[in-house]
Every structure is written in C-alpha cells, then in structure tokens.
Nucleic acid binder design. Structure first.
Lengths: 114, 114
DNA sequence: TATCGCTATTCATTTAAAAACATAATGAAA
DNA sequence: TTTCATTATGTTTTTAAATGAATAGCGATA
C-alpha cells in the first residue's frame, strides 16, 4: 500500500454581488492591456479573440464600482486602453489574495496522503 | 464612489502527481454511487452521461494508490459499484479541506472592497 | 439455462463556447 | 479632408466536450 503525495490546485474568483468580476485570466488580460496600451494587442498576446477580450473588459467595467479600463476611441493611433487606479488596485488585491490562499493551502496540505 | 462588497468563490482539486484526481463534481459522483449502489443510477441523478461517469470512476481508480470504487460485473442485479474505505476517506478529506479553505477565505475577505 | 440490470466500449450526434470574419464608427494629426 | 489603428458590434464558422444511442459481456439466482 504505497501512499501517494497529494497536490492541491485551486482557483479563486472575485465577485461583485453574484456576478463574476475577476479571475486569473482577466487579471492577465488587464496586465497585458497595461503593458501594451490596447485591448487588441493584449488579446493578440494571449490565445484570445479581440471580441472576447473586449467583452471581458466591458463586463469588468460594468461590474466594478469604478471602471478598471479607460478606453479611448479614434485619434492618432486609432485609440487605445489604459488601466485605471481602480484597475491597478484590483490586480494587486487579486494577486495578494491568491498568494495568501496558496500559502494556506501549501501549509495545510503538507501531510495529505492516500 | 460607492464601494461594492467583493465575494470570493473558489475551487480546489486534488492531484496525484500532476494528474487530476478529485474535484467537487467527482466527489458528488462518488457520494451518489455510495447512496445508489451503481454508477449508472448515480450518473442519472446528476446531469451526466453514464459514459462520462464510468470514465471518471476509472480515472480515479487508476490515479489513487488504492481504488476508490469497487465495481462488480453481472450477477443478481446486473452488477453494481460501491465505495471503498479509501474512497470514503478521500471524500471526507476533500470536504474537510474545502471547509478549511472556505473558512480561511471568508476570514481574509471580510474587508475587501472596490 | 433464461433472465435481468448493470458494467464496458464504440461510434454518431448534439451542443455550447470560442474563434474567425466582416464591417462600421471614431477622432487626432498630418 | 484623408489616413490610420483602434474600439465597437453583428454574423458565421470552428472546435472541443459531452451526450446519446447501440451493442456486447457478465454472472448470481430463479
């Protein structure tokens, strides 16, 4: 009867009310928007269609009390998108929370076997 | 600037090595097998095809060091399936772990706003 | 030895989510 | 006033996952 070590994986999501607001994927999207300055190039960088990326951004903006992405239309480069202070805070809080949970799970799972 | 309360949802998965072994859905499947005595009626009770249920059971048995479901073929009622001691333990440990994580997250998320 | 309901397995079909495609609309700047 | 890359939005196509259907095998028991 060999015992196997059990590893635990997890995911967390932030909700506002009962609507999904932020998860790992959306955080990555926000970070890429921050880095590239546009939804379209952020989407290109992940395996994601522009349409979906745009929709995600829109949902997040609708569901947060302050928008997380400021979008601009037309102009020099056609427009673009930037992360707001509220967006930066959301990203940071998500990472922090995820880290805490990871630490907790790592501690608690040390002696879990089958 | 109204702040919204943020709720956090999560899911955890048990892995043996780097293969998924157990998650919320599979735990429910095991519990239904336990209650009904067969994979087929357990599957019927959830929104799940017998095929998938059978495959899940098979995967779990392959990936655990001891099988979690004992299957019997033919005989009086055509056969059936029962949960082993190892299976019961797995279910119990999953629930316990999930509960601990839920408590941790509830505590940590008390003052999270946007 | 016939029956019965289950396990076991293959193959076709359905479905839902995402991608891909197409096309306006925008507005600063040259 | 033309250009440009982007946002914005509707429509079609692809893809992946699950379901559904069909069939064989099993074996205790009546």
């Amino acid at each position: 009867m060999t015992k196997n070590k059990v590893n635990i994986s997890f995911r967390i999501w932030f909700y506002t009310g009962n609507e999904k607001f932020l998860g790992k994927g959306r955080v990555e999207l926000l970070e890429r928007i921050d880095k590239t300055g546009s939804i379209s190039s952020a989407a290109k960088g992940m395996k994601m269609s522009y349409r979906q990326a745009w929709q995600m951004v829109n949902e997040m903006n609708e569901r947060a009390s302050e928008i997380v992405v400021e979008k601009s239309l037309g102009g020099k480069g056609g427009g673009g998108a930037t992360i707001t202070k509220a967006g930066e805070k959301a990203i940071q809080q998500f990472h922090e929370f995820e880290k805490k949970v990871a630490q907790f799970i790592a501690d608690e799972s040390k002696n879990l076997n089958f």
